[in-house]
């Protein structure tokens, strides 16, 4: 099992489209994907679950992956969040530029 911590860096946060992009990527992986924000922990392949996190710009998320492709999975998903789900990085993010 791999656990990584990332910060939400896109302006709109983990809104519906971002959640959809994450789920699409997560669903293409074999590993089980869990995403948590604080106490809240949801299935990373569920759009409704990710939206429930309601994670705005700047939030810290913990991504846990477990399975045969967990190394690739962790890398892929962490990078996806760090790239702002393809929406770009907010100037206000405090995250990597």
């Amino acid at each position: 099992m791999i656990r990584r911590t990332v910060r939400v860096v896109n302006e709109l946060g983990l809104h519906m489209r971002a959640a959809n992009v994450f789920v699409e990527r997560a669903s293409s992986l074999i590993s089980i994907v869990q995403v948590s924000r604080g106490e809240l922990r949801v299935n990373g392949k569920s759009i409704m679950g990710l939206m429930m996190l309601a994670a705005p710009l700047g939030t810290e998320l913990v991504i846990e992956v477990e399975g045969p492709d967990e190394e690739v999975a962790a890398e892929t998903l962490v990078r996806l969040v760090e790239m702002g789900f393809g929406e770009g990085v907010s100037g206000n993010s405090g995250g990597p530029k």
Binding site: L12, G13, H15, M16, P56, L57
Partner: peptide
């Protein structure tokens, strides 16, 4: 739903 979610995140932020 997306609208509700965005509003919630705004308050949170």
């Amino acid at each position: 739903l997306d609208e509700r979610l965005k509003m919630m995140m705004q308050k949170d932020q």
